[in-house]
Design a protein around this nucleic acid. Structure first.
Lengths: 226, 226
DNA sequence: CCTACCGATCGGTAGG
DNA sequence: CCTACCGATCGGTAGG
């Protein structure tokens, strides 16, 4: 199952074209493999040997790139957050500034589902569910980055609160909304390779976004019609 | 920190009053200790030796009560769900049948916060976050019990949907609401023993309930006033 | 980055 | 439920 992910190598260690440093390349491969395995089996249940094997290394080699297993976990989370922040920035920038707060929230939610469930979505779930395995210093590092990510949500929620569209306290609302979205990692079904068209097709990320928006910001007109 | 939880014992093994079988007692003690440690450190990071030590047993003794570590994990989850279902049944029964769907949802949410964050709240978080460590047969067992627990929510949400108070599809709404509530395990601060009155007092479970209700079922009158 | 290796820990068992 | 124990695995290291 992992053969495709392995770099091709002609027996033994990969001969690198001389003069070219691809340290970053191998390091990245370790981070990606770790993200995949940590997501699938959990941090504690994944051995550094498995990670090494997945990228075609020997048992001790990951420790040439990372001081210890915990540092590798941190690298997975940092990498994931960097991607998430960049995607969020791009998504918000792409829609201009004069949209309604409701539309801005839609964009943020849609991006969050993408980060959680879309392609290359192993990193953030690891961050969400392996927090416990970090040490204090590492937690501080991640907290700083996460605060940066979440900062984009506060003004939008505040605006909705000011207009009465969102009645719950902004701080708690943010936590509960993140909970509702993040929890999807637990139940959203990965696209199954078996059963080409399953009887109950799973919702698309757009449908999830729409439902979340309906849940948190019900449509006034539709509600009044009752 | 765990001394208080340990049964008092006068050196060595506890001398049981003769004729009295307290197998259930020791078994329960193991389940409680396991719940505590699994919640605090995670399943994989908790050794059966630690659990044994916490109840004053020797390293191999837990395996007199449980075939293996996984079975102990299952027992923690089953015990937690039994308690949760019983509490939910009692909470719903205590309020009669002719309350509005909104009030019924309030009761369900309040009970869920209690199960997640109140006293003896180690069991359900373990169930929520250690699902991965179960085998297939065990997952089926828990799924059945969990379906039973969640069944109480569906008619309430359906009623709210029928009246237009809840616009999102009932199934997705249930998943997202559970997510919003369950996620609180990650951020809700345990009562700190230090700092007698912290500057930003943490919300009470009643306040959390009210905010959640505001988030999912905003008050019509308040919204219309804007 | 590989080879060869080590100390520690862990789940679990036999036999009482 | 304790005593005594084992096989397996794991994170990590020295030395090249």
């Amino acid at each position: 199952m992992t053969e495709l992910a392995e770099p091709k190598r002609a027996r033994g260690r990969p001969k690198k074209t001389e003069g070219e440093r691809d340290d970053g390349n191998r390091r990245q491969a370790l981070i990606s493999a770790a993200a995949q395995l940590f997501h699938l089996k959990g941090y504690d249940a994944t051995s550094t040997r498995e990670i090494a094997a997945q990228v075609g290394m020997q048992a001790g080699s990951p420790f040439y790139h990372f001081g210890n297993k915990q540092d590798l976990l941190l690298a997975v989370m940092v990498e994931g957050m960097k991607q998430a922040i960049e995607r969020q920035r791009a998504a918000c920038a792409a829609q201009g500034k004069d949209l309604s707060a409701r539309e801005q929230l839609r964009t943020l939610i849609r991006n969050q589902f993408d980060v959680l469930l879309g392609p290359d979505s192993d990193f953030i779930p690891v961050m969400l569910y392996e927090w416990r395995s970090l040490n204090d210093a590492q937690r501080q590092t991640i907290t700083r980055i996460k605060d940066d990510y979440e900062a984009a949500w506060t003004p939008v929620l505040q605006a909705l609160h000011d207009t009465g569209q969102l009645q719950a306290p902004v701080g708690l609302a943010r936590l509960m909304i993140f909970g509702a979205l993040n929890w999807s990692v637990q139940w959203y079904e990965a696209p199954s390779t078996t059963s080409p068209s399953s009887p109950t097709r799973r919702a698309t990320l757009d449908e999830l976004t729409e439902s979340a928006l309906q849940l948190f910001l019900p449509d006034r007109a539709a509600a009044a019609a009752t």
